[in-house]
Computed example of a mutant assay.
Amino acid sequence: MQLHDVTQGIQRRKKRKRVGRGVGSGHGKTSSKGHKGHSSRQGFKLSPLFEGGQISLARRVPKRGFFNGAFKKHYALLNIGDLEVVFAQAGVVDEAALRAKGVVKGYAHDGIKVLGDGELTKALEVHATKFSESAAAKIVAAGGKAVVVPYIGKVKKDADEAAAS
């Protein structure tokens, strides 16, 4: 035996099974799919959740409680430390100012919530939908005001651009 004979007959990829090529191939006639039934039909795909006609797991397990996710609020989160970095002097901080500075982006939120991470040294008047207790305390301690404003609704981008021009 020579070294070049060792790899003869060995292929990188296994050849696919050619079915439906006559009785002599061993995979002729029904092409290894059996007789009749949905699995013998063309285009059949078995769902990974199908359990052979048995009641599915999702229907067998008892249901408890509910999830009220349709009404869940998603706030744009903002930390006190971010306000310290972005705003140089004392003044009013509202959604328009935050958008102008690029702190709040997108329109998929139901308001702005200010959280208390970081320190604040400037007297800022912050207008937001919600404040954490620590955030409100830090704003007041720095000589500013934490003003709760109701969130009217999702503002469309085109309306903002039209108002700005």
Rank of each mutant, 00 (worst) to 15 (best):
T129P: 04
D5T: 11
A163R: 12
G24E: 12
S132V: 01
A97Q: 07
K154S: 08
A141T: 08
V140Q: 11
R60P: 01
E51Q: 15
P48I: 06
A90G: 12
Q42D: 13
G81P: 02
A70M: 08
A123V: 04
G52A: 04
K17M: 14
A164Y: 07
E125M: 11
G9S: 03
Q8H: 11
T30C: 05
D160K: 11
V114E: 01
V86M: 05
E84N: 06
K45P: 00
A136G: 04
N68Y: 06
L3I: 14
T30H: 09
A135N: 01
K36Y: 14
D158C: 12
G53Y: 10
Q8C: 09
S165R: 11
I80E: 00
V61D: 03
A136E: 11
Q42G: 12
F71C: 08
P150F: 07
R99G: 00
D160E: 15
S132E: 05
D94M: 08
K45W: 03
Y75I: 05
L115N: 05
G116C: 00
K105S: 14
A137F: 02
G81N: 04
E119R: 07
D82P: 07
R59F: 08
S31E: 13
A164F: 08
E119C: 02
K14L: 15
G102S: 00
V19Q: 07
I10W: 08
L46D: 09
A136R: 09
R21E: 12
K45D: 05
Q89P: 00
A159W: 08
F66T: 05
G52D: 03
T129G: 08
F44E: 13
K156W: 09
L46V: 12
K122L: 08
Q42M: 14
A88D: 09
D110H: 04
G106A: 01
V140G: 04
A90M: 04
K138T: 03
M1W: 09
G91V: 04
A76N: 01
P150C: 05
H35N: 09
V23I: 14
D160Q: 13
V148R: 12
L124R: 02
S165D: 10
H4K: 11
K105N: 13
F67V: 10
D82E: 15
L3S: 14
V85Q: 14
K36N: 13
A108K: 06
G102F: 03
K15V: 07
R13S: 13
V92R: 06
V93K: 09
H4V: 10
A159Y: 06
M1N: 06
Y107H: 10
V147Y: 03
L3V: 12
I112C: 01
K138I: 02
H35R: 11
F44L: 12
V149H: 04
K101D: 04
Q11G: 14
V86F: 02
Y107A: 10
K72R: 14
A100S: 08
K36T: 13
K72A: 15
L98Y: 00
Q42K: 15
